[in-house]
């Protein structure tokens, strides 16, 4: 059987394959720079290029020395610890605030809905450098520059829009009469919120939280402005690593980050399917 419809001319078929080729090229362009760092991070030599030994697949040309460097170099361990502390704290804060905001904004009685939504989502749109500069001057007044709370609050502000978007998306499928039903059964509004609303919007809350975490984990501009040496995060350390101590440690870190991103993506996809299943079952 022919895979093309019979009315296809040679040009249709040529176009079909040309489109395919383009798509593969774009994909390669996006992915190759990420993939290429993975073998390079196992380089036995302090170079950013493939050594002849690596190309001939000589086992001695590969090593884990740069991964070892990460766990032994105090600068890197500190950066990793900081990234996780700031990322997790900021994500938690953003998740709580963003969820409450999304629930409030989805209420039919909320006044100035559009204006408030626009304000809350603005950190996604306003250039980071402007936010960073603004926060820097604002923070100096309160002595928050160079402190953990300062960075956590700043990153939470960046994460809130993601939580609002994902939670609002799950809330649009939420049947308000479930809330009324809870009340009619004798539960207080707060109890209904915990027992009925939260479980049903949980996939949105968790994926919003993960987005907020990744946003903080990946963020470098605010860190450059607001962090002192004590608060160096992984991206900040890579940034200076690139210029100061050129060795493949940052490639090893980058590889680990790719692995982390893949894990998060898989989790998000899993959550998305789960929430679709829950909704489909209604």
């Amino acid at each position: 059987m022919n895979k093309f419809p019979e009315y296809f001319t040679i040009w249709h078929i040529a176009g079909h394959y040309a489109l395919r080729l383009m798509a593969y090229l774009v994909l390669a362009f996006l992915i190759l720079p990420i993939l290429v760092i993975i073998p390079l991070s196992f380089n036995a030599e302090p170079f950013f290029t493939f050594t002849p030994g690596m190309l001939s697949l000589d086992p001695d040309a590969y090593s884990l020395r740069w991964y070892n460097e990460i766990v032994t170099d105090q600068k890197w361990t500190l950066a990793i610890r900081n990234s996780f502390i700031i990322g997790i704290a900021a994500a938690l804060l953003a998740t709580v605030l963003g969820t409450i905001a999304a629930v409030g904004l989805s209420s039919p009685w909320m006044p100035f809905k559009r204006l408030i939504t626009a304000l809350l989502l603005s950190p996604m749109i306003v250039p980071l450098i402007i936010i960073a500069a603004g926060m820097f001057f604002f923070y100096t007044t309160f002595g928050l520059v160079g402190t953990f709370p300062g960075l956590i609050i700043a990153h939470a502000a960046l994460g809130v829009p993601f939580v609002i978007i994902t939670v609002t998306a799950t809330l649009t499928g939420f049947d308000r009469s479930l809330f009324s039903a809870g009340l009619s059964l004798g539960a207080s509004p707060v109890k209904v919120f915990w027992d009925v609303v939260i479980p049903l919007i949980r996939p949105g809350v968790i994926s919003g939280g993960l987005f907020a975490f990744v946003t903080s984990f990946d963020e470098v501009v605010l860190v450059l402005f607001l962090a002192g040496p004590e608060q160096r995060t992984i991206p900040r350390q890579m940034f200076s690593g690139l210029r100061e101590q050129i060795n493949p440690t940052i490639l090893a870190v980058a590889t680990l980050l790719v692995a982390l991103s893949i894990a998060l993506l898989v989790t998000l996809e899993f959550l998305r399917r789960r929430s679709e299943r829950l909704r489909g079952a209604e």
Binding site: D175, S177, A181, G182, L200
Partner: peptide, 12 residues
């Protein structure tokens, strides 16, 4: 007690 038109059973 209230019975809603769309049942309003808690799906989870």
């Amino acid at each position: 007690g209230m019975v809603f038109q769309n049942y309003a059973l808690f799906p989870h």
